[in-house]
């Protein structure tokens, strides 16, 4: 079997394993009961901030459940949940392989990357239900990253018609485009006219969809499960000082962020620019507005930045010292 065949097997294997692990974490019965009720609250327009505004994946899940109900399938909610999660994980692993190889990482190294991602995902389950939108978010960012690398900028317009309906974090995608395409000429920043227009259009899409959703559903009470403290400073203090934040974050990301940053010089410029567009915003925002021990929240920077950054070290540190940049 060639390397691509093994890669396909690896994706199937990791998908099966991670879904099994995620489903047994709380048990299907719990998801059928508690999580399904939360999904229905979103669909009825009765949920809180920020869940109420994350419609894309919740409505997809609901459609799948209704289809299985119409077909008379036993336990339609459980079957739909498992099916959606299988598709999400398979998509995330496949897109990660595509993104990494597009960055110039050999396929064998990329396979290790998704293997490490799967292990990290197993430790990102604390207080997180199945949080379908987080896993869609991983795929959306990987698609955006790959499209920019492939210079298919116009496809971002289509992507941004959907991404803001999933999570607000998609606001980073226009900036991934802008930062990656900025160049310096005579000490001044320059950017192609087409890129600038696409940046402005995608940003406008994001603002109008995020704003529109808030207009439609109104301002809802903020939900911070478990922590029960107000956003911004109280939540930041809570997240920074609770031991679970750091233990669970280390269990999910491991030493990969450290290795990735140690290889900074080995990163392609585009990946460095993605880092600048995402990481400085992502971590402060999630520490101030979310419950940080739910480390699934950090899977996007993990899969998009830290894993490829760490994998790039395999080539960088095996090169003769003189040839390192």
């Amino acid at each position: 079997m060639n390397e691509r065949g093994i890669a396909a097997l690896v994706v199937l294997f990791l998908t099966g394993f991670t879904v099994w692990h995620q489903m047994t974490f709380m048990g299907l019965a719990w998801y059928e009961d508690v999580q399904w009720e939360r999904t229905q609250q979103v669909m009825r327009g009765e949920s809180g901030t920020p869940w109420q505004y994350r419609l894309l994946t919740e409505s997809t899940v609901t459609v799948v459940v209704r289809v299985f109900e119409a077909l008379g399938v036993s336990r339609p909610v459980a079957v739909a949940f498992v099916l959606v999660r299988l598709v999400q994980n398979a998509a995330a692993f496949t897109l990660a392989l595509l993104f990494y190889t597009r960055l110039g990482i050999p396929l064998a190294h990329a396979m290790l990357g998704i293997g490490l991602l799967a292990w990290g995902m197993c430790h990102a389950l604390y207080d997180g239900d199945l949080t379908f939108n987080t896993y869609t978010d991983m795929s959306l960012f990987l698609i955006a990253g790959t499209l920019i690398l492939a210079r298919r900028f116009r496809w971002l317009l289509l992507l941004m018609c959907f991404a803001p309906f999933n999570r607000e974090t998609s606001g980073c995608i226009p900036f991934m485009l802008l930062f990656s395409q900025l160049r310096w000429e005579d000490g001044r920043p320059k950017i192609d006219r087409e890129v600038l227009l696409i940046f402005l259009a995608t940003l406008a899409l994001w603002v109008s969809i995020i704003g529109g959703l808030r207009l439609v559903y109104g301002v809802r009470p903020y939900i911070v499960p478990t922590a029960g403290v107000a956003p911004i400073l109280p939540l930041l203090a809570f997240n920074l000082t609770w031991w679970r934040t750091w233990v669970f974050l280390f269990a999910t990301l491991g030493i990969l962020p450290l290795l990735a940053l140690a290889n900074w010089r080995a990163w392609p410029q585009t990946l460095q620019r993605y880092f600048l567009a995402v990481a400085p915003v992502w971590f402060p925002i999630h520490f101030m507005l979310a419950h940080a021990p739910e480390t699934r929240l950090f899977l996007v920077p993990h899969v998009l930045l830290f894993i490829p950054g760490a994998l790039l070290g395999l080539g960088y540190w095996s090169a003769p010292t003189a040839s390192r940049r």
């Binding site: 390397e3 093994i6 690896v10 294997f13 394993f17 099994w20 396979m111 998704i114 292990w119």
Partner: peptide, 15 residues
């Protein structure tokens, strides 16, 4: 077993 060995057997075949 899948959690313990992960992708390593697949990579071991390659290496």
């Amino acid at each position: 077993l899948a959690g313990t060995f992960g992708v390593l057997p697949f990579l071991a075949v390659l290496g």
